[in-house]
Amino acid sequence: MTLDDPAGTIDTQDMENIFGCVCDLNGVLRGKRIPTEQLDKVLEGTVRMPLSICGLDIWGEDIEGSVMVFETGDADGVCVPTGRGVVPISWTRKPTALIPLWMNEESGAPFLGDPRRALANVVDRYKSHGLTPVVATELEFYLIDPTDDTPAPPCSPVTGKRLTSDGALCLDELEHFDHFLNDVYDACRVQGIPADSAISENGAGQFEVNMRHLPDPLRAADDALLFKRLVRGIARKHGFAATFMAKPYGDRAGSGFHVHFSLVDQDGVNLFDNGGDDGTPMMLHAVAGLLETIQENALTFAPHENSFRRLLPGAHAPSNVAWGYENRT
């Protein structure tokens, strides 16, 4: 499968169904289960879904007062492939796959309420200046025991005992959960997700997986979205649940989502790098812009009530508007 070949080389003959999915405002994939006989219909961009599903809240409900619902008759949009192609899914009982889609209006114009369309507009603005953002992400998540009504750390597959202590960069924890992690990396290779290093994080059953840098913000965002779904699916396969929520435990470390980025020009020159430790004036202007707008952007960086439970002083979380070189606090 190549990134530019919609159907790729994926054999869908053994698949009974596929999923056509769009991404909503909270990074949740929403869509339809479609018989594989209708694969061409999906790839041709004739699947329809309500435009309003791009703007649901974290509970999957319509946002009160949303103009995408009653004021417009909750109209359908046209779902067209993003170009990612057929993405195999390895954790379901039968072979299946999903096809990432994004929304057009009935007229064929891009639907600007689709968050992927919003990101594409930002990328186009960079391109108009001859610039390309180079992006990498780090995703933190917890494995939890799903057998109780309240979240609890998982039991070690090796010892059978529940994890009770924090394990920052603990090799034993990585080894105890190596079957799960091996399946995660295998699925990433199949889906074309550039997973890099993994560590055991501060919390019991908490892990972090880094992605490699890409000169394609849309691709990097797609990878992060698919990775989150992949981890949750493989966790279920191993008898766990996985959560990327900011603060699943009140008394344990929260989970962050880190984004690294730089800017390169048309010649591939990193415009933030002056060859030394200080960075270029453009980098400093970029940092200043982040500092100036960080409070207004809290709605994006911390969109839910649970997000703010993580933002505590002394918790390795961004509770102050500040910056520094090699500074995690």
Rank of each mutant, 00 (worst) to 15 (best):
F141S: 01
V264G: 02
G108T: 12
P81D: 13
L56E: 04
S165I: 14
T329I: 02
E61P: 01
P100N: 04
R189S: 04
V80T: 14
T9K: 04
D222S: 08
L291Y: 03
R189K: 14
R229E: 12
M1H: 15
F261I: 01
D11K: 04
E305M: 10
G324F: 03
D14R: 10
R30M: 09
S128F: 01
G55H: 03
T300C: 10
L3K: 15
D216W: 12
A221N: 03
P6V: 11
H316C: 10
A109P: 01
L39Q: 09
E61K: 12
G167P: 02
A302N: 12
E106G: 01
G239V: 10
D216S: 10
G45W: 07
T92P: 09
C79L: 15
N274V: 06
C23S: 11
K41A: 14
G8P: 07
P151W: 05
A298C: 01
P281N: 10
V42K: 06
D57E: 09
P303Y: 05
G73W: 08
E37F: 14
F177A: 00
D178G: 00
L131H: 02
H213Y: 13
P133E: 06
I294P: 00
W102Q: 01
M103K: 04
E173L: 13
M15S: 07
S200M: 03
T164D: 08
L56D: 04
P95E: 06
E305F: 06
D74S: 12
E173Y: 14
F261V: 00
K247S: 06
G65V: 07
H129E: 12
P115Q: 05
D40Q: 13
G276H: 09
V42N: 07
N121C: 13
D265F: 04
E138S: 02
D114P: 03
G324H: 01
A241M: 11
V321G: 00
